[in-house]
Design a binder for these strands. Structure first.
Lengths: 213, 213
DNA sequence: TTTAATTTGTGCGTATGTATT
DNA sequence: AAATACATACGCACAAATTAA
């Protein structure tokens, strides 16, 4: 099982009657293949296979993970109402200073953090959204309560960045580790932006997939 | 210079005042990067090219850059014929050991390197492709000469990784900098794979955008 | 909070096997 | 056949990070 701890190198060496160096040599091969992960002072652990995460018109993070046989989990870090900055307003097609709901969170799969995200919702179009989100803790449900029955992803922008200290902390990776940054806008049926989100995926835990039909 | 022989491990160990194990550990890293090649009983030699090292390609890349007002450029690093490894064969739906054409290169925009790529073409389906590629230096044209009039991208997989030494060298970034890795398969009109490619984009120079119409 | 034990990471020394020259 | 050189393995020691007492 991913996350399980292997016997210590010394134990494996004794078990198979070989030197610890030999065990380490074998383990290094597994590390190179990405099957296990080592942590100095802690041990060797079975690596979680990178989660394939299909991107498309309808991105439903939880549903995708469930379909992949994972146990997804979402952890809310912060929900606040504030006014939109210039860039945020531009993406959401609202005016700078308009009220928005900022939703910070952490996504996990099988207990392992795989992404942190910030979602911004224009409150001018979604009255009562913040309260609904607090109650349901489901974005889709809260949007429905705010009058948006369906939404689709209009744009996706991807690049690779280094993990900052706080990002590394939340994602349980090392500072400077590569992250996949996704920026996107979701729109309602009238093509009006109703969410502007940024997501940072741990590079070694997620693979985004695009399938052309 | 390629082909030159390095001092023996023992000599290097004495020269730097370290143990031979340490030298071997360092050399193994160079071997992994494809910079040197070892021959038991003979010595360690500078590799002719950074061979067998993952790199990839992205379709319509040039067109996108041109549309953005850039001056794209493609630089061929290496073209060789070799046999497919297990993973490559699986992606191309051929048998392990079947002949393929490996095409390594560097993509630049306005003179700045933005991506390195490795494209693999199954020669069992594309007779004479290598020669055609050498003549035309255009993948699309070479494919047409090999009998493929049109092709489309079937899958795209994206994740973030750290730049290796050689990748950093080609892309003119620092070792460990975040790269956006794209893996994809192109298929012909009969949905048969005709190209398996990997591309590494410099994270701070490229943003991939996906727009849903 | 501090300390101690545990565990991986790194390095040195040595010996033996195997391929090349 | 002999010397050279890489490949593999064992044993020991210590550093660095983690974990538990």
């Amino acid at each position: 099982m991913p996350g399980d701890k292997l016997p210590t190198e010394a134990a494996l060496a004794e078990r198979f009657g070989v030197n610890r160096h030999t065990v380490r040599h074998g383990l290094s091969a597994l590390v190179k293949e990405g099957l296990v992960r080592t942590r100095r002072g802690a041990g060797v652990f079975v690596a979680a296979t990178p989660t394939d995460y299909p991107i498309g018109k309808r991105v439903r993070f939880h549903e995708n993970l469930i379909a992949a046989g994972r146990k997804p989990e979402k952890r809310v870090l912060q929900v606040e109402e504030r006014s939109a900055t210039g860039g945020e307003a531009k993406a959401l097609l609202v005016d700078e200073g308009d009220p928005i709901c900022a939703y910070h969170g952490l996504s996990l799969s099988d207990g392992q953090p795989i992404a942190i995200f910030e979602s911004l919702f224009p409150l001018t179009r979604l009255p009562g959204f913040t309260g609904a989100l607090s109650e349901t803790s489901s974005v889709t449900e809260a949007l429905r309560m705010a009058g948006v029955s369906d939404y689709t992803r209009a744009t996706t922008r991807l690049t690779a960045v280094r993990a900052s200290v706080t990002q590394a902390l939340h994602l349980q990776v090392s500072e400077g580790d590569p992250l996949l940054r996704s920026t996107g806008v979701n729109v309602d049926e009238a093509k009006t932006p109703i969410e502007y989100g940024r997501t940072w995926f741990a590079g070694d835990r997620v693979i985004l997939t695009f399938e052309e039909p």
